[in-house]
Design a protein around this nucleic acid. Structure first.
Lengths: 240, 240
DNA sequence: CTGTCCTAGTTCGTATACAATCTTCGTGCC
DNA sequence: GGCACGAAGATTGTATACGAACTAGGACAG
């Protein structure tokens, strides 16, 4: 029952008290969520977190609100925070949005890409193939983030980063065995090196579609304790 | 000295105490910002707002944080909140992002558009042409929001809504006389009715480029954050 | 045995208090 | 006269206290 110990593991050396411990706590939680160390549906009691990180509930609450606005955690009136478990329709929407945005963005990426960028992407791919499952998921997200960053548009990068994070949640809920993402990225690197736009865009769209197709929406793959999403659309206070 | 009266005008009937007054306060501030009743650079003291809306600083702070994450206000350490004044490079980035996203999104909009949608857009356009300047700006934003909503993708709608709001800020800082936006929208409606994708996309791109071209970035340097406001527009719009 | 109601415990929502920081304005020195 | 320094005021950052809501467990009636 004592969640504090669990969250202590996340805390690490967050001793940057007073200054901007917000950022450190945010990073710790973000990584834990993206790496599936905290599963969708898991509750995040405020004072367990505040005790684990050694800050007051005020600070924790601020970080939780930020995560809620990014749709990584869900805040419900008087019921606290828990890791968001996306509904199937939300999941499909995220993939649709990513196909659209990443496809369009590649047109901006291709003219700007440098050999150094390709090297960086290769390095991430390299680590992906070697990493444990958990880290592989984060690295896969990092691969896509690094890719869109080449377009050098903060607005678009930020919007897509949110979608990429949410994808990790979706895989946590509906993913089976292993997503095909990591192994495939090398193909994209080759296409990028070739430099033709249309094949790159086609590949990305197919890549995302493959991942989406590998999901299993029939069952709640993980221990998913909230049926609110599945059945009743009770009034939720979720910040749009 | 007393900002409270100024903010009281925004408060309206926000008497939904205890429940979700957050949303009401957020809406009031959002509208005031988008309609340029609060100009970029204007400070938002916490206790003036809390007094005006009749809630505690805690609540105000939560709303301000949300607006900050949407980049409508800027929070600085120990210096409080003020309306964001986008830099020229941020402004250009927003327009680039909008050209990309709205262009791509139109491909999703066109197959889904219904006569009812066209009627709704026409109604907004109608009000645009008749409205005062301030309301026209909000209605112009509403026109674009309503347009992207037709694609029926919450993720994309939300991402674009943020960009649209930020555009309003950009016009507040760099806009001259009047933006050509309102009058032109009728052209888009005609093109949408015709139903050919390519002309619609071309028009939208040109539309956004026209607005961007009508801005005047010479006033302030890119590198310096907000000196133009510290020196140039030093006054807060204290009416009385 | 099952379902409902009631009570106890836990967790969250809001407000307030106090400390730290920044800003402003006045004074003194160069 | 201008600049630097310092103190007072104002504003924010953090923590804590208290009230309200939800959850869980047990007792009692059907």
């Amino acid at each position: 029952m004592n969640d504090t110990r669990q969250f202590h593991l996340l805390a690490g050396q967050v001793s940057d008290r007073g200054a901007r411990s917000d950022e450190a706590i945010y990073q710790a939680l973000w990584e834990a969520i993206v790496e599936h160390r905290l599963s969708p549906g898991a509750r995040l009691p405020e004072d367990a977190l505040s005790h684990a990180f050694g800050v007051s509930r005020t600070t924790v609450r601020r970080v939780l609100q930020r995560l809620a606005l990014e749709q990584l955690v869900t805040l419900r009136q008087n019921r606290g925070a828990q890791i968001t478990s996306p509904t199937p329709s939300e999941a499909r929407d995220v993939f649709r949005a990513r196909r659209l945005m990443e496809g369009a963005l590649l047109a901006e990426v291709l003219p700007r890409i440098t050999p150094a960028d390709l090297k960086a992407l290769e390095a991430i791919h390299e680590r992906e193939t070697r990493a444990e499952r958990e880290h592989a998921i984060r690295l896969s997200a990092e691969f896509h983030s690094r890719l869109v960053a080449i377009a050098d548009s903060p607005s678009l990068s930020e919007a897509l980063s949110q979608l990429i994070s949410r994808t990790s949640l979706i895989i946590a809920v509906y993913g089976r065995a292993r997503a095909g993402c990591p192994c495939e990225h090398i193909e994209l690197i080759e296409l990028l090196r070739a430099g033709a736009l249309a094949p790159v865009q086609r590949w990305m769209s197919a890549h995302l579609t493959r991942i989406e197709a590998s999901l299993d929406f029939t069952a709640s793959g993980d221990a998913l304790p909230d049926f609110e999403h599945l059945f009743g659309h009770h009034r939720e206070q979720s910040a749009s």
